[in-house]
Amino acid sequence: MYTTELKDKHAKTAAAISAPEDSARLEAFEARVAADDFIEPKDWMPEAYRKTLVRQISQHAHSEIVGMLPEGNWITRAPSLRRKAVLLAKVQDEGGHGLYLYAAAETLGTSREEMIDALHSGRAKYSTIFNYPTLTWADIGAIGWLVDGAAIMNQVPLQRTSYGPYARAMVRVCKEESFHQRQGYEITMVLAGGTPAQKRMAQDALNRWWWPSIMMFGPPDENSPNTAQSIRWRIKRETNDELRQKFIDVTVPQAEAIGLTIPDADLKWNEARGSYDYGAIDWEEFYAVVRGEGPVAKERMQARVKAWDEGAWVREAATAHAAKHETREAAE
């Protein structure tokens, strides 16, 4: 989901597995994956599997890091000491999740520096949702409730994804994630039950975050050509549309419980399907944001590049100091 199967110019398709790769090994690999076994870092794996995983895991990591920014925007303005502490803890968790995921990606033969370089140069993507601005405190509630809610929906099945380090990172993430959603929903609930100004803030935030949140699940299944292979390799456990439907079905009653209205005139319970029918998603908007034209995409990248560039002298100092120490210790 965090990659939403964003096509990148350099991706190979499943058919392009090069001939020299041992087809017996490939068969053994596929059998292990089909048997719910885990693949670990030094195991043989098809190049396409390795490449897809590096892309998916690193983009998931980038999303966590960039995701610190829209919420970080409100830590200094949180309206109570408790809200401030909880938000700071949540954003710190997100940084931590990014760390677990970068660590998992590094086991596949890439480095933190390479991944950051890919992000800053625009080659690597991150979840489209973080290119939207947080205008009011109510946005912080909406993000926790909807964005973390959508993330949880995706992450829970990934706890049994085929690649061991990724699965283990997901187990850690899932343990920590549940307070994130509750925090957001609680904020929204208090606002929705508050003064008219607060209620307006909460509804306005829902109006702006609803559609981008359901877009987080990626393009419709018919436009996701890699889904079948990803599912076979257990990199994905359910399809985009399946997850999206689940999310909508779970979230609509949550909104109703606090007196907020989902901004979709076509939303309707379908008794026969046992699910909600929902309105058409503006895929033009989605693809524009994927292309880098999201409302605050520039601001997000500028912030990350600035932090990295301005931090260079710090990293260099630490490295220089460590080297001096090694030399001194060796001389003793």
């Binding site: 700071l88 710190q92 940084g95 760390l99 710090v314 990293r315």
Partner: peptide, 19 residues
């Protein structure tokens, strides 16, 4: 310290500041 959130020289340092 919370002003540093998301802007530290290294992710690990971000976590320290938040701590």
């Amino acid at each position: 310290l919370s002003e540093w959130c998301g802007h530290a020289p290294m992710l690990e340092v971000d976590l320290s500041f938040a701590n």
